[in-house]
Design a protein around this nucleic acid. Sequence first.
DNA 1: ATTGCTGAAGGG
Length: 392
Amino acid sequence: MFGTLSRSLFVQSRTVPCIMAETREEETASAEASGFSDLSDSELVEFLDLEDAKESTASVSKPGPSSELPGKDDKPVSVQNWKNGLDVLSPMERFHLKYLYVTDLCTQNWCELQMVYGKELPGFLTPEKAAVLDTGASIHLAKELELHDLVTVPITTKEDAWAIKFLNILSMIPTLQSEGRIREFPVFGEVEGIFLVGVIDELHYTSKGELELAELKTRRRPMLPLPAQKKKDHFQVSLYKYIFDAMVQGKVTPAGLVHHTKLCLDKPLGPSVLRHARQGGFSVKSLSDLIELVFLSLTLSDLPAIDTLRLEYIHQETATVLGTEIVAFEEKEVKSKVQHYVAYWMGHREPQGVDVEDAWKCRTCDYVDICEWRKDRGALSSSLEPNAKKSK
DNA sequence: ATTGCTGAAGGG
């Protein structure tokens, strides 16, 4: 009832193998653990796919009927190219994704092409930018630790990872209802045909008894964000509300969750996950037990929809509050934005770079040198220069 | 394996 466990949140340790020695052993011992070696394999395959596709488009210029599809060529390698070709795979398939993160759509809101380059070249960041992100992350972690402890749970499968997420939800809902505040609440659900996964920074009840979402943004420089940054942040918290509301209203069903995530309900949970479930007072044997329990807890705990969306900007170095905003939730606007972004992910349209008036974003973009959008725009730039603007 | 797979957010 008041033990440390009820105030603890679990973190999975698969991607942080240095925290516990036992985790390292489990990872190397288990062939299906998705460690770093698996990741590099997948990146290599992706790279080869892209090369294949480039070759297949280049082969169109060969002598013969040039209007023919590349795959019409009688070489078997071309059949292979057609099967793997970029033009028949949606970005979701090409990147081997079953769902997206809320922040994927937010980066897409900032610059769609930058988000694509980020997926193609993961971990490609300048050290300066990485340092700012690290500072932000540790400030968030410090705030989280003010509210609860973190317990590291070793895992090996994605089913374990989701089970940890579910156990956290099961412990956080009662905490929110009794103590009025939680941090890092996981959310997931379908929006406009795509499944989104994210984490709400903070939820609390106000003195008026309203449920408020609070998103902290830390900033390198002691200045308020530009409108473009605010727009992105507004979109982020709006997505959280959209998904959270759907969850507590029972619109995110166990069946829908399993359908999108392709979780194996009959895969046995890892011993450490089962141990922590038992210690947390949850008598679950399987993942499907856990999912049903989460669904019931979400829908039967008298959780309201989120009433207010609050953004707070603070200076990283001095912790000075730079500003606070209350965001108006515009459901139709959120939906139509998501529809537009999803159209890219489903392969219904090509990715776009920023509009000319947002070209200043390129100044701090890590992909500025390879960006195709900028190259294309450069060819037109003479007619688009501000001083070339004529009477219209 | 004719193959599989995901801590999310971190800031501009």
